[in-house]
């Protein structure tokens, strides 16, 4: 408080605007509420650009356009890793044995039950495309490893089978599938 002015502290009481007529308060209250509302709208509107600026920018979105992957060079039993939107995508050329293993599992025993044929494109069970990010906390699992010779996440020990389904460990769900389609028999477009 201002030290150089004596006796001010106890005089602020009653300094609020004094209501003089009975008709005035409603008009006054309406004005105050309207002003506060308009101010609140202004603050909210000012937040929009600040928040939007932290979303992916136009160049990032453009760079996230679909990519095409040539399946020709991928040998049977091989898993390759490509990047789409900064995420690793596993493209696996599964062997007959791997497909069989994936299809003979008792679905009821799975933490996240899902049949293998729902995880590949119809008529192309040998091609499996997965987002290679562990559903636990985002590490990248290692292919052809773990108890089911599927994927094993070294960070916290989640084990996935050859269909990318979670079998044991802390991960809650199966490895997700990216949107993709077959452009031809030997080419897919991811995204």
């Amino acid at each position: 408080m201002a030290c150089c002015v004596d006796g001010l502290d106890d005089t602020n009481e009653g300094r609020k605007p004094v209501t003089t007529t009975s008709a005035e308060p409603t008009r006054r209250d309406f004005l105050y509420i309207a002003t506060a509302s308009v101010g609140a709208v202004g603050v909210a509107a000012a937040l929009v650009p600040l928040i939007a600026a932290m979303n992916p920018d136009a160049s990032t979105i453009a760079a996230g356009a679909p990519i095409e992957v040539d399946l020709g060079p991928i040998a049977e039993g091989q898993v390759i890793k490509v990047f789409w939107r900064g995420k690793p995508i596993f493209v696996s050329h599964r062997t007959k044995k791997e497909i069989e293993e994936a299809r003979s599992v008792n679905l009821a025993s799975l933490p996240d039950p899902q049949p293998d044929d729902k995880r590949v494109k119809e008529g192309k069970p040998q091609w499996q495309v997965l987002i290679g990010i562990c559903t636990h906390l985002g590490c990248i699992p290692i292919a052809h490893s773990g108890q089911y010779n599927g994927y094993f996440c070294p960070c916290h020990g989640s084990v996935y089978d050859t269909s990318g389904r979670i079998r044991s460990g802390p991960a809650p769900t199966n490895l997700p599938l990216p949107p993709y389609e077959f452009v031809s028999d030997s080419k897919i477009r991811i995204g």
């Binding site: 650009p49 939007a52 600026a53 979303n55 920018d57 136009a58 160049s59 990032t60």
Partner: peptide, 13 residues
Amino acid sequence: EHIMRDVNYGWLL
């Protein structure tokens, strides 16, 4: 210029 062109509302900021 990236801010001016690509970032959402970057030109405004």
